[in-house]
Computed example of a mutant assay.
Amino acid sequence: MSNIKLIIEERAARIGDFLVGRLLPFRQKRAVGPFVFIDHMGPVDFSASQNLDIAPHPHIGLSTLTYLFEGNIMHRDSLGNELEISPGAVNWMTAGKGVVHSERTPDRLRNTPKRLHGLQIWVALPKALEQTEPNFYHAEKDKLPSWETDEVMYKLIAGEALGKKSPVPVYSELYMLEIVNLSQEDKQITIGEGLYGESGLYILEGSVRIKSHRYTAKQLLVTQESHLCSFELSAKAKVYVFGGEALPEKRFIHWNFVASDMKNIEKARTDWEQQNFPKVPNETEYIPLPTFNY
Rank of each mutant, 00 (worst) to 15 (best):
N282Q: 08
I179S: 00
P43R: 06
N91W: 05
V241W: 03
H138W: 01
T190R: 15
P145R: 05
L289Y: 09
E133G: 07
R214E: 12
K236L: 15
H40F: 00
G88V: 08
Q184T: 14
N81G: 00
I189M: 04
S86H: 00
R14H: 13
K114S: 15
L79T: 02
P58L: 09
F37R: 03
H117P: 00
T284I: 15
E193W: 09
G16V: 15
H101P: 05
M1R: 07
A89D: 06
A31V: 04
N264E: 11
R110E: 06
H227N: 08
I38M: 14
F257E: 03
K267Y: 00
I7K: 07
R115F: 07
T223M: 07
K155A: 06
A48W: 13
E133V: 13
F18T: 12
H59R: 07
E133F: 09
V239S: 06
T223D: 05
D271S: 13
G42V: 10
G194K: 07
A89T: 04
V44K: 10
K97D: 07
D150E: 14
V170L: 01
Q131E: 12
R22H: 05
P248I: 14
S49M: 09
R214H: 15
Y240S: 00
A139L: 01
G16F: 13
L204V: 04
T105D: 00
M262V: 11
W147A: 07
T270W: 02
T291G: 12
A13T: 14
L119K: 04
Q224P: 03
E185Q: 13
V99R: 03
K164Q: 02
L129G: 11
D39S: 01
P290G: 08
Q28S: 07
V152N: 00
V258P: 02
E245K: 01
L221F: 09
P134G: 12
L201F: 08
A48Q: 10
I7A: 03
G244T: 01
A158W: 01
D77G: 01
L79K: 00
E193R: 13
V36T: 04
L233V: 11
L177P: 02
S212K: 14
A246I: 10
K267R: 11
F26R: 06
K141M: 13
V32S: 02
D261P: 03
R269E: 12
M153D: 13
E283R: 11
R269N: 09
I253G: 03
H57Q: 13
A55G: 02
N135G: 04
